[in-house]
């Protein structure tokens, strides 16, 4: 290869990289605005029918049911304000997936109003506290009231999901 063609190739590579970078920035900005939808938004019909989207929210306590015969699980995603959507999936649930914890699943609504998930991910917070300490604290203090008050809403739709 002539030095000049080499230089041209390198310049093109640099341009390509920058182009990819800017394209991805816009993609990320898109995702920033609607990376995921809360159950309320879905129930209001903000998601066009038939599209694949991400559903965020808490797994309702006591709602997780695994099928005895096949690899299928059902659980209810809630925002603790009465907006609930039932998710059905035949994928393996991640280790961190638990009731009353945040999850993000990707899929679409079917005709029966069920969310069929192709992928179920668990979300966690950035509080790195030991499990034992939490138990001790919980015993010391009075049992925590159920988290259904309005102050949780911001967290519900945001970071905690």
């Amino acid at each position: 290869m002539k030095p000049r063609t080499k230089r041209i190739a390198f310049v093109l590579l640099a341009l390509l990289t920058v182009g990819a970078a800017s394209a991805l920035i816009s993609k990320a900005m898109d995702g920033n605005l609607n990376y995921l939808y809360a159950p309320e938004q879905v129930l209001k019909g903000e998601v066009p029918a038939g599209t694949v989207f991400r559903l965020g929210g808490l797994v309702k306590k006591g709602s997780l049911k695994r099928s005895d015969t096949k690899l299928e699980a059902r659980f209810v995603v809630t925002d603790n304000r009465g907006n609930e959507i039932t998710v059905v999936t035949n994928k393996i649930l991640p280790d961190l997936f638990q009731e009353e914890k945040s999850q993000v699943s990707r899929g679409k609504m079917n005709d029966e109003g069920l969310f069929v998930a192709e992928e179920v991910l668990a979300k966690h917070d950035s509080e790195y506290m030991p499990a034992e300490l939490k138990d001790v604290l919980a015993k010391e203090h009075a049992p925590a009231p159920a988290k259904v008050d309005g102050s949780e809403i911001g967290k519900m739709t945001g970071q905690k999901i």
């Binding site: 605005l33 995921l36 950035s126 790195y128 911001g154 739709t157 970071q159």
Partner: peptide, 16 residues
């Protein structure tokens, strides 16, 4: 927080 919901946890240094 409603404008930037994500999968990644926030980078908060509280509660570690």
């Amino acid at each position: 927080p409603t404008q930037c919901s994500s999968l990644h946890q926030e980078s908060s240094m509280k509660n570690i």
